[in-house]
Computed example of a mutant assay.
Amino acid sequence: MIEKEISVIIENGLHARPAADFVKKVNQYKSKVELVKGEKRINAKSILNLMSIAVKEGQTIKVIIDGEDEKEALAFVESFLQSGKE
């Protein structure tokens, strides 16, 4: 299991289009991927869950990844949240 706090740099945060792109890609990993913002902990593979926490530019969130490809999944999540790209 990997836990890491990541500052969200992606312009305008995870609004509809980047959230959909994020969920599509994160679902390709076998690992369980969760995001924690404040008191909310969500499954990052669900677009509805992701939209419910309203991740905005400049915020810091905790990422929790557990599974066989967790390092690769973390590299993707970190890269995406900081640039909007893989």
Rank of each mutant, 00 (worst) to 15 (best):
1 M>R: 04
1 M>P: 00
2 I>N: 04
3 E>H: 00
4 K>Y: 08
4 K>E: 13
4 K>L: 13
5 E>M: 08
5 E>N: 09
5 E>R: 13
6 I>W: 09
8 V>H: 07
9 I>P: 01
10 I>C: 02
11 E>N: 09
13 G>E: 06
14 L>R: 10
14 L>K: 15
14 L>Y: 14
15 H>T: 04
15 H>M: 06
16 A>R: 13
17 R>C: 00
17 R>Q: 05
18 P>Y: 15
18 P>H: 10
19 A>Y: 11
20 A>I: 15
20 A>G: 04
20 A>H: 08
21 D>F: 07
21 D>K: 15
21 D>H: 09
21 D>P: 00
22 F>A: 05
23 V>S: 09
24 K>A: 03
25 K>E: 12
25 K>R: 15
26 V>M: 14
26 V>E: 14
26 V>W: 14
28 Q>D: 10
28 Q>A: 09
28 Q>S: 14
28 Q>L: 13
28 Q>P: 01
29 Y>F: 15
29 Y>K: 06
29 Y>D: 13
29 Y>N: 08
31 S>F: 13
32 K>L: 12
32 K>H: 15
32 K>S: 12
33 V>A: 11
33 V>Q: 06
34 E>P: 00
35 L>N: 13
35 L>Y: 15
35 L>S: 07
35 L>Q: 07
36 V>D: 04
36 V>M: 11
37 K>T: 06
38 G>N: 07
39 E>W: 05
39 E>L: 08
40 K>L: 11
41 R>N: 09
41 R>W: 02
42 I>Q: 02
43 N>Y: 11
43 N>C: 01
43 N>D: 14
44 A>G: 08
44 A>T: 07
46 S>H: 04
46 S>V: 12
47 I>A: 02
47 I>H: 05
48 L>S: 02
48 L>G: 01
49 N>L: 11
49 N>G: 02
49 N>V: 09
50 L>H: 11
51 M>L: 14
51 M>P: 00
51 M>D: 09
52 S>M: 06
53 I>G: 02
56 K>R: 10
56 K>G: 01
57 E>I: 10
57 E>T: 15
58 G>C: 04
58 G>W: 12
59 Q>I: 04
60 T>C: 00
61 I>W: 02
61 I>N: 03
62 K>M: 05
63 V>D: 01
64 I>G: 00
64 I>C: 00
64 I>R: 13
64 I>D: 01
66 D>N: 12
67 G>F: 06
68 E>M: 07
68 E>I: 15
71 K>P: 02
72 E>M: 11
72 E>W: 06
72 E>K: 15
72 E>N: 12
72 E>D: 13
73 A>M: 11
76 F>M: 10
76 F>P: 03
78 E>W: 05
80 F>C: 00
80 F>K: 11
81 L>I: 06
82 Q>L: 03
83 S>H: 10
84 G>T: 07
84 G>F: 10
84 G>A: 07
85 K>W: 12
85 K>V: 06
86 E>Y: 07
